[in-house]
Design a protein around this nucleic acid. Sequence first.
DNA 1: GATCCTCGAGTTCG
DNA 2: CTCGAGGATC
Length: 699
Amino acid sequence: MGPFTIQLPDDEAELRRRYEELKRLIHYHNYRYYVLNDPIISDYEYDRLMAELRAIEEKHPEWVTPDSPTQRVGAPPASEFRKVRHPAPILSLANVFDDAGLDAWLQRLARLDPAVLETDFTVEPKIDGLTVVLHYRDGVFVLGATRGDGEVGEDVTANLRTVRSLPLRIPTRPDGPKPPPYLVVRGEAYMTRADFEALNEQLRARGERPFANPRNAAAGSLRQLDPSVTAQRPLRLLTYQIVVYEGPDEPRTQWDALRYLEALGFPVVEADLCPDLDCAKRAYRKWLQRRPTWPYDLDGVVIKINDLELQRRLGAVGKDARGMIAYKFPAQEVTTTLRDIKVNVGRTGVLTPYAVLDPVEIGGVIVRKATLHNFDYIREKDIRIGDRVIVRRAGDVIPYIVGPVIAARTGEERIYEPPTHCPVCGAPVEKVEGEVALYCINAACPAQLSRNIEHFASREAMDIEGLGRKVAEQLVAAKLVNDVADLYYLKPEDLIPLEGFAEKKAHKLVEAIQASKDRPLERLIYGLGIRGVGAVTARLLAERYPDLDALRHATAEELSSIEGIGPVTAQFIVDWFRRKQHQRLLEKLRRAGVWPRASRPSPSAEDQPLAGLTFVITGTLPTMTREEAKAYIQRHGGRVTNSVSRKTDFLIVGANPGSKLRKAQTLGVPTIDEETLRRMVEDPGFREQLLAQRRRTQG
DNA sequence: GATCCTCGAGTTCG
DNA sequence: CTCGAGGATC
């Protein structure tokens, strides 16, 4: 059995002793791994211990008890869940949505019992999962239930057993206190966003229906009739309340209760202890700030009267406990009505549908539009005009439509048909074989043209100040420009008839356009908007070809010999230059004096301080913008890319770093700050030292 | 042929 | 920021 050779002692008593020891050890290592995230043995050693335990249990099945680590999966599928009456009501919470509501709560309580003005508070994150109630007799997990209606829940013991961070026997830590004979703990079962995404990925791959959000996924997983299915689901647990404590030395405050649960080896929510409500409000804002990057969904914080006796005295209104309150975050997911589906035309002619919504507030901003990605997406999700739809905006993420609320259908909804003609120019629409996107085939489509001009003028390209989307659309609508070269022939008097343009603004724009004539070649190439050619590829081309004429005559074979350019991109480039329309465009640019020639890279590039090094930037740097930092690194011979990989040499970290920091840490990519970057450039000795250190740690 | 890496393109609100 | 696809590498 298994990849391990197991030697068991012959002596019966010795074997029994070893068996108990193994159970204890494995529970402890589970706790280190799943609760503390700090394992002290390797997975291999862990598997070995498990194998040894199984070997003993095979020999002595009569020794096996439900708290054995092997029993996390094992119970047969149930046909339905048994009902369980909770030993005490599992109360819900009243909500407040702002500081004023919170103050009002305390004032109400103060009238009932002035003692609340003397007490302190705990502030705990409110996890968006589902409540579970866990029963322990003499330290052994015997029963787990869902909340149900607060009086009666469902017995999901077998499923909860499969949750790795749930202690099957307490104390889990060797130095933990002895638990009372009977203990009931309240907690939250939940799923992290990353685990949820991975699970949905699996479900989709198997052709099963994915879950709408992590909470539904957690609930669906816990209510599986077959525990072996639950065992495959990445459920987690955090506890935050003692419901019943029968025994001596009962904790008297919420804070002590949390510390006690922690000592027993439960995963416990991270709480703050606050002397007053001002502190609680600060804690609320701390969690609000953490929320976007927190690994799992939070819907607010729970503020509790710390003194448990006082909490008990305050009692409940209906099903809401008086002595605690939920201070809710602005919702991240709401339902609204989808009024219409409209279509955008991109610079490359791609048609992208978006939803026009009844405006709703999500996460503190009003959302009116949401992208629908592509036409397949609308069909797959069966989104219809007039549907109630769930809109989600998590963190700083762009809002998107999760799906329709089928139950709210009235029959009035209309099925959406993808356009057969471009909504802007009316030209027929084309679907490229093997691609999802629909394209407008008209190269002269005004929407494509104005997006093209916008791109040409953008900061990364020709950097023309005052020429954004709106002005680009105006110029196209007034037929003042038919391609980007026409910009350079504009005179102030052409602009004055346009809405919003007077003498001064017209002059300024013309000046800004003229000033862009001497931008380097790579920016011009990028600005042309050749399919497949972004900033990086444009730079490669500008290094290889001295001007647009040379590039124009390049063959596909020649282009694809450049490192970083393959046959596909090479063909895109050749095709672009082959078009009559683009040849005329080039001629006009040349006549207007927009004809940069590549500045040959200095031959000493090899000796530059950052030669051969790749950097990634995350967060806000103290004295440089991201663009400046990028230019600074490139000026000194280094490369800057967007995503962290093993090939990244250094991650430059500023304030409020994003997910790249975590990626760098898992990959072992060294992180430095702006100051260190400057020293690397300015102080060769320091640089050598740093690089030598990096080589050593890479092993 | 498979896998990893990098680049391009599109996206929302204030 | 994220996804998809092109390109490089083994």
